[in-house]
């Protein structure tokens, strides 16, 4: 297991629409630039739980098993936007008894979308 991993994911123009349909979260701050701007956001923003799913996938893709994730906790901070790269960094903290613990974060244009992430992965 690598000590430090980095993956980059770029949400496209339509990512928030796909996620809204798949999750049932149709909050207009994720779908409508005008509405988002009316509540002091720069434009439509990514769903936090979509971003958290990218942090989850950054762990499980390494072992090739989506069920290997035992737990994941994150703090949401900055607002993510479509069409800009997101870099997910995972740092190995400990490894014992078939489990690895990672510290993770997700950063977009210097803005931390997810910080203090902690993932426990079955290995």
């Amino acid at each position: 297991m690598d000590e430090l991993r980095e993956v980059t994911i770029t949400p496209d123009r339509y990512t928030t629409y796909h996620y809204a349909g798949a999750s049932g979260d149709f909050n207009p701050i994720h779908l409508d630039d005008e509405f988002a701007q009316s509540v002091d956001l720069p434009g439509k923003i990514l769903h936090g739980l979509w971003t958290m799913a990218q942090v989850a996938r950054a762990q499980t893709d390494v072992v090739g098993d989506p069920l290997a994730l035992k737990s994941l906790s994150v703090q949401f901070r900055g607002m993510g936007v479509p069409e800009r790269d997101i870099t997910i960094t995972s740092k190995l903290k400990s490894q014992a008894d078939g489990e690895a613990v990672f510290d993770c974060e997700a950063v977009q244009d210097g803005n931390k979308l997810v910080r203090r992430g902690k993932a426990v992965l079955r290995i």
């Binding site: 990512t15 996620y19 798949a22 999750s23 799913a53 996938r57 499980t60 090739g64 989506p66």
Partner: peptide, 17 residues
């Protein structure tokens, strides 16, 4: 189909899904 739709929306590509 909901699992498949969700997996596609988050970019999950594992065949198990």
């Amino acid at each position: 189909e909901k699992i498949r739709e969700y997996a596609a929306a988050v970019g999950e590509q594992n065949p198990l899904c």
